[in-house]
Amino acid sequence: MYDAFVVALSVFIGVAGHELLGMSMLSRPIVVAPLVGALMGDLQLGLLVGASLEALFMGVVNVGISSTAEPALAAGLATAFSIKMGGNIEAIIPLVFPLAVLGLQLMNMIFSFVCGPMATKFFKLAREGNEGGMIRLHFIMWVIHYGIYALIPFFAVLFGADVVKAVLDSIPKVIMNGLTVAGNLLPAVGMAMLLRMLWSKDIAVWFFFGVIVMAYLEIPLIAIAAIGTIIAIVIAQRDMQIKKMQTVQLQNVTSPVSSSLDDEEEDFFR
């Protein structure tokens, strides 16, 4: 029970602290594993597990819905099982990895279907001018998001990894898959809200420019940002020129010299 609690706590501190303290990387294995180790009385082993998992997860950063396994959960469980079952880290990692994959799926489910609907309350509270409510919601969502998640390591350590995996596996594949499909489509709502802020008929075509470039050239977002910046600058320059010409014309109309010029032109065209 104590073990289950401290592992859950460590994972919570990792993933939740990471978000609360400005993506401070508290959720990385190099932090979570030694923390679990220290709380379970074997800091040295925690350090070792942390180092090997950190190396394993080097390329993994969880952004939105992506990636395969969640590092903090993997680190917490790997450390706990290493300490309980004794030493061999290489054998432990394949054991906890599937659970960390499931963990990430569950976290995405919470993200999509608990936090998503809850977030719409922000607009209602804002319209009411209820600042306190917005602040409460902001932190309640934080607790719920990572609190539910921390239940996985809790039960995994309490009942063993196999039991938890079996329970999570027993959710019908069709439903799991359907939720994943929906989760993948859900960012469309965010995009639609952005479009509502930016859309106007004369520039809407640029949205489709972004779509086409990304769909067919598959270049990184930063490259599209650079291209977009150049386009924006070119258009701003053109607009500035037009503005300058307009002011010059305005001056011409008012000054007598130019009016005679206009006359000449009119003569010419006649």
């Binding site: 960012p187 995009m191 930016l198 972004g210 779509v211 977009g228 701003a236």
Partner: peptide, 28 residues
Amino acid sequence: GLITILTKAASILGLIMVGAMTISMVKF
């Protein structure tokens, strides 16, 4: 009066990014 020009340019860049993110984030 430059702000209208800046707003338009910013909106264009924003739209391009939203278009790109529509493809990279919404998956099916």
